[in-house]
Design a protein around this nucleic acid. Structure first.
Length: 476
RNA sequence: GGCGCCAUCGUCUAAGGGUUAGGACGGAGCCCUCUCAAGGCUCUAAUAGGGGUUCGAAUCCCCUUGGCGCUACCA
């Protein structure tokens, strides 16, 4: 039974690296008929926030990602403590009564020799340890890593291959804090064992932690899951992506708010550190599920390409544009509608016409936000005439010609691309001007923009009444 | 400091002993064209450095360099 989990600690916003980890887990589960589990690793009481939990849900929901089972570690503390007790009883762990050193005491590791254990604790007799514990003295439970036995911990990572590390290089890590709360290592492994997680897919920053985890699984008498570590997402400066240092680029909601299609953004994230190896880039979700495997995962970190001027990876933008223009138009209508509503537009009553307008303009847009921005003249009568468009209107005689065209269109009951084109070309010929003057002038009059779709398509997109009114308006 | 991992165009990546080292984004240009996109075509740009092994190395081995991670009673 294939079971995978995504286990974020709710201490910040949903990070794009975390989202990608979820996606790879999800892909693996969906590809192989497994179960996807969402588990909140919230043992760090000090740093957990509800806002962070909400942000994780928001982000995952937006990305249209789902899970089959849900747990929170804070509900499972008894299990963790029992696991610690089991390991202690087996003699594979011991109590350490040394007061907490804190993060600033890192010097101990810099004296040439790595820190492995606090003096006098590991060797303490069971009697003394029990007595001091019974007397209420605070302690932390540490794993008793085998010493001088030549023991080497090994496992085979699905991405990084065979891994091994000498126990002499593993310190006696903590399992249970003096507060009685489990550490990440213990809680994570105890839960993974209890939930029968078969594959652990997570960031490469956990690669070296895995040796400790193998030790814990063994001590628990649990089956050791198959591990797969993912290369990390880093910033152009080579540093780990961080909210503090790199700002909103690390947050999933940034891309939602920037007008990305969720499936397109997932597509982009997948391409960071994974490749289908056949040069495909734009893929539907189903295509990715069908082709996903660990074979395609890289071992080197991937840079999310952004600068202060362009805070969004250009490739993500390009991919979004690809999805935007190639998806069946009906699929993007809900998202487009939402963006327009949020921007305060009245949604056209004629759904078929609305869809055709979206279809007409979408090839020129890269994000959903463009529909509300550049798309304004298509959905509202209040738009300004851009300078470049003004130039087209200021061509000698253009305004009068446009007004005349408006009159002729008003006099003709037929209003199709063909009929409009016929009127426009006839007028141009009649007055001895190039059709371009009227064509470009029409675009400028109808949309206030010098660039856009074919002018003739524009007439029907804007609609008969509006088109005539806009032609008339520029004459004044 | 110790231990571990990683190293192909600016970025994402393909090639895993034999290729003019391929594709994509970005940038530049051409074509198409009523404009702008889209699309098509062309150009730009890479095997970190040094040693081996081999007829032949981006690919295997070693060293160096650089980057990242872990080294907390964070996760």
């Amino acid at each position: 039974m294939l079971r995978v989990r995504f286990a974020p600690s709710p201490t910040g916003y949903l990070h794009i690296g975390s989202a990608r980890t979820f996606i790879f887990n999800w892909l693996y589960a969906r590809r192989n008929g497994g179960t996807m589990i969402l588990r909140l690793d919230d043992t760090d009481v000090e740093r957990n926030t509800q806002a962070s939990v909400d942000s994780i849900y928001d982000g995952l929901n937006w990305l249209d990602l789902s899970w089959d089972e849900f747990y929170r570690q804070s509900d499972r503390l008894d299990l963790h403590r029992a696991a610690a007790a089991t390991i202690l009883e087996k003699g594979l762990a011991y109590r350490d009564f040394t007061p907490a050193a804190g993060p600033d005491a890192e010097e101990k590791a810099h004296d040439g020799m790595a820190w492995r254990a606090n003096p006098g604790q590991r060797e303490m007799s069971k009697e003394e340890s029990d007595a001091r514990a019974a007397a209420g003295e605070p302690f932390v439970i540490r794993y008793r890593v085998p010493r001088d036995t030549g023991r080497v911990v090994s496992f085979k990572d699905s991405v990084y291959g065979d891994q091994s590390k000498s126990c002499d290089d593993i310190e006696d890590f903590a399992l249970l804090r003096s507060s009685g709360m489990p550490t990440y290592h213990l809680a994570s492994c105890a839960d993974d064992a209890d939930l029968h997680i078969s594959n652990i897919i997570r960031g490469q920053d956990h690669l070296t932690n895995t040796f400790k985890h193998v030790l814990i699984f063994e001590a628990l008498g649990a089956a050791i899951p198959q591990f797969a570590h993912l290369p990390l997402l880093i910033a152009p400066d080579g540093a780990k992506l961080s909210k503090r240092k790199h700002g909103p680029v690390v947050s999933v909601t940034t891309y939602r708010d920037a007008g990305f299609l969720p499936h397109s953004y997932v597509n982009f994230l997948c391409l960071l550190g994974w490749s289908p190896k056949d040069n495909r880039e734009q893929m539907t979700r189903q295509e990715i599920i069908d082709i996903f495997s660990f074979e395609g995962i890289n071992r080197s970190n991937a840079v999310v390409n952004f600068t202060e001027e362009d805070p969004i990876d250009p490739k993500a933008l390009w991919l979004n544009g690809q999805h935007l223009r190639s998806l069946p138009v009906a699929e993007i209508m809900p998202a487009v509608t939402k963006v327009l509503e949020n921007a305060g537009y009245t949604i056209p009553a004629d759904a078929a016409h609305f869809t055709s307008v979206v279809d007409l303009i979408r090839a020129r847009y890269t994000t959903l936000l463009d529909f509300a921005g550049k798309g304004r003249p298509y959905f509202s009568d209040e738009f300004t005439i851009e300078p470049a468009a003004m130039e087209k209107l200021d061509v000698a005689g253009a305004r009068a010609l446009l007004a005349k065209l408006g009159e002729r269109l008003a006099a003709d009951a037929e209003f199709t691309e063909a009929s409009v084109e016929a009127h426009l070309r006839a007028l141009a010929t009649e007055r001895g001007v190039k059709a371009g003057v009227l064509i470009n002038g029409s675009r400028a009059a109808l949309t206030g923009q010098a660039v856009g779709p074919s002018a003739f398509h524009l007439f029907t997109a804007v609609g008969r009444e509006r088109a005539i009114a806009r032609l008339k308006a520029v004459a004044q």
